[in-house]
Design a protein around this nucleic acid. Structure first.
Lengths: 241, 241
DNA sequence: GTCTATAAATCGATAGAC
DNA sequence: GTCTATCGATTTATAGAC
């Protein structure tokens, strides 16, 4: 056992990559487990995901997985984090590849919807019903922020954007309620703008969720034009152009 | 199908009221089972609901339930139908108890949110991720329509309501895509109005879902003012006032 | 129509050999 | 670090006595 890792000198690496050969192998196998769990998730859904089925898929025995993940919940956490990072990445990328605040917003929306349609179970994992018996640790909350920040970034780069005046003449409690959200997403903007951002983000997730969860079944098959129009409408309501 | 009819033989009943004593008793017990299933659902959630736990709660043995519901899925269908009817009823009632299209919309929104907060697992059942292994029959689609019709009713009673012009200059495919939805909800209205109605409804379910599913955890505790403002904004975007 | 009993699976997690 | 074996529990669903 003292052989391989004794020569950690040459292959010593920076912070993000494992130092020893042993650690690298372990990291690779961990990634393989997460990948297999992702495939399993895509087939059976979050609530039906089990450690045993993941082990079967890898040709391993269930107990072997406990060397890598102390519980089913920790594996779920890894999948949730991965999903948030993935959708956050496509959102950022899309927002960065368009000009004009409304076009950036629409590009972000389309990218998020495309990701959701390609990964419906992953979408359900992060934006659907909570998985029974699973308690989300704080780390997933941080990962979830990435997408929200991408949305807020579109607003942040459109300093003049503001929802129309007089929507609700005096919402008494809006200011204090919105304060923590403003601090995290849109420092310096007024309460209606922050609220409109929340609404835009909510409309997007709601639209994709209803579609993926089968609530437009009676409606149409070619959903894209309706989606694009609705997202344009919600972007306009936030003052984007 | 809600289950019982499927295995009811000679004593098949008329539309709503049972004929024989036997059938009435059977209907009562069926209702008791659904009620117990509702309690169980409220505790463990849709994905974890089992026939056995319902039987335990009733002091019955699991196999006895199969005389009333041929499968777990048929019991789930009954619960789904019940939930849709319940939220549809409060939506209708709220919409009918206010004057002015925007106020009616806001009343409907508050009522739907209140119902969702009071019945989070029922909400998850109908608006959350699909239950693994469950295929929704056509009857649930009909029940789901009740809430949507209540929303559309607010728009229908505000004939002048229309989203602002020039939101998306020419959405080429919007017209044909929106046609079936218009026929079901808002005959005679133009495509943008129908789309704005879809968006308003989507914003409402999205807002409640994100709240109930824990996505505003880092945000605020007093969520109501933000909710009301956002729904006012979405109502305005549909042309309500 | 309710019961006992059972079939045939599933699951998370752990102990201990190697 | 992977294996066998197992504990203790869950589930849907069915067969057959009464």
């Amino acid at each position: 056992m003292t052989g391989p890792e004794a020569i950690t000198g040459p292959e010593a690496e920076a912070a993000s990559t494992p130092r020893s050969v042993r650690a690298r192998v372990r990291a690779e196998l961990t990634a393989e487990i997460v990948a297999a769990a992702g495939e399993e998730l895509a087939e059976v859904g979050p609530a039906a995901l089990s450690l045993r089925s993941v082990a079967r898929r890898l040709g391993m025995v269930p107990s072997a997985l406990y060397r890598y993940f102390p519980s089913r919940d920790s594996l779920l956490t890894a999948l949730i984090t991965e999903a948030y990072e993935a959708v956050g990445a496509v959102a950022e990328q899309a927002a960065g590849s368009a000009d004009g605040s409304l076009d950036r917003w629409l590009a972000l929306c389309r990218a998020v919807r495309t990701w959701g349609r390609a990964h419906p179970q992953q979408w359900a994992l992060i934006y659907g019903s909570p998985v029974p018996g699973y308690a989300a640790p704080q780390t997933t909350v941080a990962a979830a922020l990435r997408v929200t920040l991408a949305v807020a970034g579109v607003l942040r780069d459109a300093p003049g954007a503001r929802p129309p005046q007089g929507v609700a003449p005096d919402e008494p409690g809006l200011e204090p309620v919105v304060a923590p959200i403003r601090d995290a997403l849109l420092p310096g903007r007024d309460a209606p703008t922050v609220a409109a951002t929340v609404l835009a983000w909510t409309s997007l997730t709601g639209m994709v969720s209803l579609e993926l969860f089968g609530h437009y079944e009676g409606g149409t098959t070619e959903f894209e034009p309706l989606f694009a129009y609705c997202m344009a409408l919600s972007g306009r309501a936030a003052g984007l152009d």
